Simulated scan of single mutants.
Amino acid sequence: MPVFRSSLMLAALLLACASEARDYRYSDSHLHYVDFFQESAGMDELLAAMEASRVDHVMISGIPVAKKWHEDEPKRPRYYAGDDASAYWYSATDVLVAAAVKQLPAEQRQRFHPFLSGFNPNDKNADAHIRRMLELDPGLWQGIGEVFTRHDDLTSLTEGDTPRANNEAMTRVYHLAAEYDLPVMLHSNVTSKRERNPLYLHEIEEPLRNHPHVRFIWAHAGTSMEIHRHQERLDFLLPILTRLLEDYPNLYIDLSWTMLRPYLLDERGKADRKWLDLVIKYPDRFMIGSDLVGRFDSLGEQIRAFDPFLDALPEPVARKVARDNFLGVLPRKVREARDGSRAAASSCHKAVMPLS
């Protein structure tokens, strides 16, 4: 019996040590520098939150729409759904992001990966606007998005036609993304608030099929908190993602907050076995993000909420999902420059090592 008890104690100790060893470094694959009023807590707060939360890299974008404070509204709204006033497409959001990133010192700037978002996805001039922005700041922009297409009540509040991921204007954007080797992050709801079927699946699947040279990041895998308020869980989501990931190697999944529950973790906070199996099967295709909007003090809380799911994955896969997969989807030039910098730093370190 003492031997048996000692073995149990040793096993428990080893498990505890293994758990403690899971000290992740993160990439936040989905963060908005400004809110729906194009306001921000600023880069100092964001940097402090990153340091405190072990977040090494951030996808940083604006918000492509601005919420109107309408003449008939007595109180300034706090969010796009705060009242019935509309929202409108707002291109200056990218100027705000660019200014914030460019004022950083070089060693900090390498941690930020700006994505262009300030364009109307219904306008066939959008690709020309994006090209101008790319030429205005060569080398700054590393992706396109988050593009707002189907997006709950925001779709009906935004002035103009309903944007779709498979319309002609976005087709032109995808061709430009392929030309510049830029990933595209799309918010494209897979269904409406009440339909219990993948009503809008074709809107995301057509671009995946027609643009195999574009890397698509599907924000929240087509889900949203508003959908979940009306139907708690989309039972068809897992089978759909399983098929799409098999059929389209250019698809990547952003697991930011609306995916955490009710999909990745159950009500007890335990990782869902079927979702674990899917991530293990496609270990390079999933990434995590906070989806914070202009305020960053909860960054650590949002990112570390994924730890129970990460801890249930094999450690190499968990580290990919936590940090590396987002970096892997960036343009080749960005990846090569980062790898070159790491190699140079390693060579420098070896050169100054004392001789034995």
Rank of each mutant, 00 (worst) to 15 (best):
S29A: 15
P77Q: 03
L14I: 13
R76E: 12
W69L: 09
V101D: 02
M59Y: 04
H32W: 07
A100E: 10
S6R: 12
S61M: 14
A16Y: 11
D35T: 07
G118F: 01
P121A: 00
D44A: 13
K67V: 06
F119L: 05
S53K: 03
K67L: 06
F36P: 00
A11N: 08
M59D: 04
R76D: 01
H30S: 04
R111P: 07
Y26C: 07
A12D: 11
A98M: 03
K124I: 08
Q103Y: 00
G82L: 05
W89I: 06
I130H: 00
V34A: 05
L31I: 08
D84K: 13
L10S: 09
A52Y: 01
D28L: 05
A87M: 13
E135Y: 09
D123T: 03
A48N: 06
E51R: 13
H57D: 12
A66V: 10
P121W: 00
S117Q: 04
D35P: 11
F119Y: 03
S86R: 09
L104K: 04
S7M: 11
D137P: 06
Y88P: 01
Y88V: 12
L96T: 10
H30A: 04
S27P: 10
A49F: 01
H30Q: 15
S6F: 03
A99K: 14
F36A: 03
P105S: 05
L134F: 11
L8S: 08
L96K: 09
M133Y: 04
D35W: 02
H70A: 15
A66C: 04
A85N: 05
W69S: 06
R109C: 08
D72S: 14
S53Q: 07
L136E: 15
A11L: 15
F37L: 11
L13E: 12
E51P: 02
M43I: 15
D84N: 13
D123W: 02
D83M: 09
S19D: 14
A81E: 13
A100P: 05
Y80G: 03
P121N: 02
S40A: 07
R25D: 14
E135F: 07
S29N: 11
M9T: 10
S19W: 11
Q110K: 12
A128W: 02
A100Y: 03
D44Q: 12
D84Y: 08
F119V: 03
N122C: 15
I130P: 00
R54P: 00
M133S: 12
S40G: 04
E39N: 13
